[in-house]
Amino acid sequence: SFGDGWSYRWNPETYAGAGYAVVMIDFHGSTGYGQGFTDAISQHWGDRPLEDLKKGWAAAQQKYGFLDGQNACALGASYGGYMINWIAGNWSDGFKCLVNHDGVFDTFGMGYSTEELWFTEWEYGGTPWANPEGYQKFNPANHVENWKTPMLVVQGDRDFRIPTAQGLSTFTALQRRGIDSRLIVFPNENHWVLKPANSLQWHDEVFGWLNKYLAPAR
């Protein structure tokens, strides 16, 4: 659920303040609708939330006439960054650009590299060797052949939850596919953006990417 909070990274008001409309979909896995709804994302990373996002985005456009569905960008971090990679391969016509912060690229590799082992084993139904199919079912790395949307990739080099290799792999896939892409690495940040100066740079980079693809032609 989205509360009345503030951070150095995701603040919807900053996008609205920059002149963009903001749509946030409270998809499967969120809190606030009962424990069953929260647990429903386990072993369903790529299907239920993606369906929610597609339906929510369509409903928002139908309800709010000022939204321009043909001129939109999708952004996400952590699991949201995973979803950006998943969107790149499974909803490739949905957006003009993408922004991925500390996102999962290879769910199978995550099972061996993250410091949060309990998390991957819960989300993918066991260990990588005991249930490899659970790790590969919704693995963004298996759909890179469908990627075509420009993407900004941001990575904290002290992130041990979603290690740097995941961000580098995402960027390598984009570059090898010939897709317009940019990589920003913060050597002194972990899974978050915690330093004010880095937050300023983060916002400059993100808004620069949005403006590049979404700003009206002059």
Rank of each mutant, 00 (worst) to 15 (best):
N188T: 08
A197T: 12
G208F: 02
V144R: 10
F171S: 04
L152A: 06
F171D: 06
F160Q: 13
A217I: 11
I179K: 09
N139Y: 03
W147F: 15
L214Q: 09
P196G: 07
W209V: 00
E189H: 09
N139C: 11
G156V: 03
V185S: 09
G156Y: 09
I179S: 02
R161S: 05
V206T: 05
S181F: 06
W202I: 01
N198K: 09
I184D: 06
A215W: 05
Q166L: 07
L168D: 07
Q155K: 05
V193I: 15
L168K: 14
Q155T: 10
W202T: 03
P140T: 04
D157W: 07
N146I: 04
S169F: 01
D204K: 12
A165D: 12
Y213T: 05
G167H: 02
P150W: 10
R182T: 11
N146K: 15
R182F: 12
N142V: 01
P216V: 05
I162W: 02
T170S: 13
W202D: 10
R177M: 15
H191N: 10
D204H: 08
S169P: 03
P140V: 04
P150K: 13
R176F: 03
Q155C: 10
V154T: 14
G167R: 01
G178H: 07
S169T: 05
P187M: 09
G178Q: 07
R158M: 15
L183C: 07
K195C: 08
P163K: 10
F171L: 07
L168P: 00
N190G: 14
H191S: 06
T170A: 10
L152M: 09
Q166P: 02
R161E: 00
K148N: 08
R158W: 08
F207P: 00
N146W: 09
N190E: 13
N142M: 09
F186P: 09
V185Y: 04
K212H: 15
S199D: 12
L174S: 00
